[in-house]
């Protein structure tokens, strides 16, 4: 998958000049009607009134955003204070997603580098090994992790049998378990884009640096990392964005207690809370945050291209 991303910005071939609009139309229609319009409707819903026991009433209100940012007490009649809890959930999600990204990078970069520098034949095998987990169902992987780390799971059993611990290590239903799940879920997402970047890396640069008596470390930080930065950033985004809105890891590994944004939103539609406008508002806030991250990414890419 070398080359660009199909942005169509390079030398433009014109074999089918004039057919651009009809050819792109199906994509516009499908994504427009079934994603853009729904997001706009969701935006509208976030300003509607919550109906008692689920559903919405078509009366405009800022109640959902008010609930998100202000605490008006148990009975809703106290003077508003800043509501920290939802901000905290968002902060926890950002922190967890950020930590998962860093951990994935620490393991993923050396792995990607190692694989990309193998001779072509064995490289295929390494690449195959890293791609398989990427294609395994995310739910299955989360379940496997849950099975492995629970108090009576194989890991604790073996450690107990081997006499290394006297009591099971309690990880399940903690923030650590969620972190482990996120890291495990999205690790392959980090390796593949960095691999693609390292594969295109020009090793003459390393040689030049060595000739100038740069140490290995200096070469790595001053020469290599800047050149493969696009791959690193792409990998970070592919880990960070899905981690931010993750639902399976907090639900299955966190015991629905270590709430992250994904579980908070899900609860508004599937669970007892039944507050659609609030769920829509939380989803809009999450979407806004992700778009801000992506805009920064796009700008850094544009700067890199110049």
């Amino acid at each position: 998958m070398a080359g660009g991303l199909g942005q169509g910005t390079g030398k433009s071939a014109r074999t089918y000049a004039g057919l651009g609009v009809p050819l792109i139309l199906p994509a516009w229609l499908i994504i427009g009607i079934f994603l853009v319009v729904p997001i706009l409707i969701m935006l509208v819903y976030s300003f509607l009134t919550k109906e008692f026991r689920g559903g919405v009433i078509w009366e405009p209100t800022l109640a959902a955003y008010d609930q998100f940012f202000f605490d008006r007490g148990l009975f809703g009649d106290e003077p508003p204070k800043i509501e920290w809890t939802y901000i905290l959930i968002f902060w926890r999600s950002i922190w967890q997603a950020g930590l998962a990204t860093v951990l994935c990078l620490l393991i993923g970069f050396p792995t990607a580098w190692f694989i990309a520098t193998r001779p072509p034949n064995s490289r295929t095998i390494w690449l195959f090994l890293i791609t398989v987990p990427y294609w395994v169902n995310l739910l299955i992987r989360t379940i496997s992790m849950k099975f492995l780390i629970r108090d009576n799971g194989p890991l604790n059993q073996w450690l107990l049998d081997a006499g290394l611990i006297s009591e099971p290590i309690h990880v399940i239903n903690t923030a650590t378990a969620v972190q482990l799940g996120l890291f495990y879920s999205y690790l392959p997402f980090m390796v593949l884009p960095i691999y693609a970047a390292v594969e295109r890396y020009n090793f003459a640069l390393s040689e030049a640096a060595a000739d100038l008596y740069a140490s290995r470390w200096v070469t790595l930080t001053q020469v290599i990392i800047p050149s493969v930065k696009p791959g690193i950033i792409a990998g970070c985004i592919l880990v960070f964005v899905p981690s931010l809105g993750a639902f399976l890891a907090p639900d299955l590994l966190g015991g629905a207690k270590n709430f992250m944004i994904g579980s908070l939103i899900e609860e508004q539609f599937k669970g007892a809370a039944g507050n659609w406008p609030f769920g829509a508002a939380a989803a809009m806030i999450l979407l806004t945050m992700v778009l801000i991250v992506l805009i920064f990414y796009a700008r850094s890419q544009a700067r890199g291209a110049r």
Binding site: F34, L35, V37, P38, I39, I41, M42, Y45, V241, P242, L244, G245, F247, I261, G262, I265, E266, F269, W276, G279, A280, A283, L286, L287, V290
Partner: peptide, 12 residues
């Protein structure tokens, strides 16, 4: 994010 798509589609 997937959860946003899910919610938006359901509402739609």
């Amino acid at each position: 994010p997937e959860i946003v798509t899910a919610v938006a589609t359901l509402i739609f």
